[in-house]
Computed example of a mutant assay.
Amino acid sequence: MRSFVVTGGGRGVGRAVVERLLADGDVVVAVELDARALAWIGDHPAGERVIAVRGDACLEEVAEHAAVLAAEAAPLAGWVNNAAMFRDASLDTDDAATVLDLITSNVAAAVTGCAVAVKHYLAAGRAGAIVNVSSHQAQRPVRGALPYATAKAAIEGLTRAAAVDHGPAGIRVNAVALGSVQTERYQQFLAGRDAAAVAAVNAQMAELHPLGRIARAAEVADAVAYLLSDSASFVTGVVLPVDGGRAVRGPDPEEN
């Protein structure tokens, strides 16, 4: 049995990753800022193998607490930095401090998680894995999402640099770059729109992704589980697109 920490583990992609790792019989600590998003853990069939930690993943004391709980249950083998803040800002309408704060908030959670995980792996004298959750926007930003796209680009740089720095200790650091995913947040985005508007959004999403649909959260979780597993023992410094081909799709000038 091994243990894992998943930040932003209460809902969406984070919860899917938690559930996927639990299915393998391991222990998972889910870190989540919103206590309501952790309510499902109380009566989960995994029982004591799933542990809730409420707190801000940007804070080192929160991440350290999660690491200690995980390591007490079983050897700490993997860390998933999934926590993110979704808020848009623009250089022309917001002051620089606001934009910088939003960028920093997203990068800080990944840096904190990486730092705590690396130190625990080194102290235990064990190899370990880290997976950072990025986005297709790190390479192809969507208008209006500058802080988020900038932060995800920084997280991909962090992934490569940490892989180089800590590879000699057997610590692997990878990232998954996501397209659109079927989560509660996506459903909230559609809520309140009439049927025609929902159909239009779904058609647009299908067009953006060459596979013709957005991802299921469980599909992302499978990719994360692979990168954490021994099957990926010689994979590090990789940013793996899990986006149905969205990042490679370009406009076809002959379509219209």
Results as ranks from 00 to 15, higher is better:
Gly55Leu: 02
Leu59His: 09
Glu64Val: 08
Asp56Pro: 09
Gly42Tyr: 04
Glu32Trp: 02
Cys58Asp: 09
Ala37Ile: 03
Leu38Tyr: 06
Glu61His: 14
Arg49Trp: 01
Ala46Cys: 08
Pro45Phe: 08
Trp40Ile: 03
Ala46Asp: 05
Trp40Glu: 01
Val29Met: 08
Arg54Cys: 14
Arg54Ser: 11
Gly42Pro: 01
Val29His: 05
Val53Arg: 09
Leu33Glu: 15
Trp40Gly: 03
Val53Met: 07
Arg49Cys: 00
Cys58Asn: 10
Val31Arg: 08
Glu64Ala: 15
Asp34Thr: 04
Arg36Lys: 15
Val53Lys: 09
Arg54Gln: 15
Ala52Pro: 02
Ile41Cys: 03
Glu32Val: 08
Ala37Ser: 12
Cys58Ser: 13
Gly55Gln: 12
Arg36Gly: 15
Glu48Val: 03
Asp34Met: 14
Val50Met: 14
Ala30Tyr: 02
His44Thr: 01
Glu61Met: 08
Asp34Tyr: 02
Val50Tyr: 08
Glu64Thr: 14
Ile51Cys: 07
Cys58Ile: 02
Asp56His: 05
Val31Ala: 07
Cys58Pro: 04
Leu38Trp: 06
Arg36Tyr: 09
Val31Pro: 00
Ile51Pro: 02
Ala37Asn: 11
Glu64Leu: 10
Ala46Gln: 11
Ala57His: 01
Arg54Asn: 14
Ala57Gln: 09
Arg49Asn: 10
Ala52Gln: 07
Ile41Asp: 08
Ala37His: 07
Leu59Arg: 13
Leu38Phe: 06
Glu64Ser: 11
Pro45Asp: 06
Val62Gln: 11
Ala37Glu: 11
Val62Arg: 09
Arg54Pro: 00
Glu48Ala: 15
Leu59Glu: 13
Val29Trp: 04
Glu64Pro: 00
Ile41Gln: 08
Ile51Glu: 13
Ala39Arg: 14
Arg54Tyr: 06
Arg49Met: 03
Gly42Trp: 04
Asp43Arg: 12
Val29Ile: 00
Ala35Leu: 11
Val50Arg: 07
Trp40Lys: 03
Leu38Lys: 10
Glu61Ser: 13
Glu64Asp: 14
Gly55Pro: 04
Leu38Ser: 04
Val53Asp: 11
Ile51Arg: 11
Leu33Val: 13
Glu61Val: 10
Asp34Val: 03
Ala35Ile: 03
Gly42Lys: 13
Ala35His: 12
Ile51Gln: 14
